Amino acid sequence: MTQRIGTAATIRRVAGIATAVLAATALSAGCGIINGTSANGTGSTPAASPSVDPKAVLLAAVPNEDDPGFRFSTVDGTDKLVGVVDPAAHAMELGLTQKNEDPKFTMNMTFRMIDDQSWLRVKLEGIAGLHEMMKLPKRWMALDRAKLDDPTDAPVYEGTDPGNTAAIIRTADTVEDKGDGTYAGSADLTRGQDVANAVDGVDIAALGEAAKKVPFTAVVGADGNLTSLTLDIPAGGKQKATKLVVRYYDFGKAPKLSAPTGDQVQKAPASAYELLNG
Rank of each mutant, 00 (worst) to 15 (best):
Q193P: 11
T190Q: 08
A187C: 01
E176V: 15
D194Y: 04
S186E: 14
N197T: 10
V175H: 02
G163H: 04
E209D: 15
D188N: 13
G208K: 13
I204R: 10
D161G: 09
Y157M: 06
V156R: 14
V202K: 02
T190C: 02
P215D: 07
V195K: 04
I169W: 03
V156W: 07
A198P: 01
G208Y: 14
A184D: 10
T152C: 00
V195T: 04
N164M: 11
P151V: 12
T165V: 15
N164W: 10
T182V: 15
N197W: 10
V202L: 02
R170A: 13
D177Q: 07
V175Y: 09
K178N: 14
A187I: 00
Q193H: 06
R170Y: 03
G179H: 09
Q193I: 12
P155Y: 09
G163I: 00
G192T: 06
S186H: 13
T182K: 15
D180F: 07
R191V: 05
F216K: 05
N197E: 13
D200W: 14
T190S: 09
D180G: 04
V219P: 00
L189G: 01
Y183E: 04
K213E: 11
A218P: 00
A211F: 10
T171W: 05
Q193Y: 02
D180M: 13
G181Y: 02
D177E: 08
A184E: 14
A218K: 00
L189M: 10
G163E: 02
A198Q: 03
A167S: 14
T174F: 07
A198T: 01
T182Q: 14
G221R: 12
Q193F: 07
R191Q: 15
D194H: 09
V202M: 03
V220R: 01
V220W: 00
V220S: 05
D180T: 11
T217H: 06
L189P: 00
A187R: 01
F216A: 07
V199D: 04
L207S: 02
T160H: 06
E158P: 07
K178G: 01
P155D: 08
K213S: 15
A167W: 01
E209H: 08
A172W: 01
T182W: 00
E158Q: 13
E176K: 15
A211T: 05
Y157E: 03
T182E: 15
G192H: 05
A205L: 09
E158H: 07
D200C: 10
V220H: 04
G179L: 11
T152Y: 08
A206V: 09
G181A: 08
G159L: 07
N197G: 12
T152W: 06
V202Q: 02
D200Y: 13
D173I: 08
A218V: 05
P162E: 04
K213R: 15
I168T: 04
V199R: 09
G159E: 10
A211Q: 03
A196S: 12
P215R: 09
P162Q: 04
D203I: 11
V219D: 12
K213C: 00
F216W: 08
N197K: 15
S186R: 12
D180Q: 14
D177L: 07
G179F: 05
P155I: 06
A211C: 04
D153G: 01
K213Y: 10
R170G: 00
S186V: 09
D177M: 11
I168G: 02
T165W: 01
V195L: 07
D177N: 11
T160E: 13
G221M: 10
P155V: 10
D194V: 03
D180L: 12
Y157P: 01
A206E: 12
G179C: 09
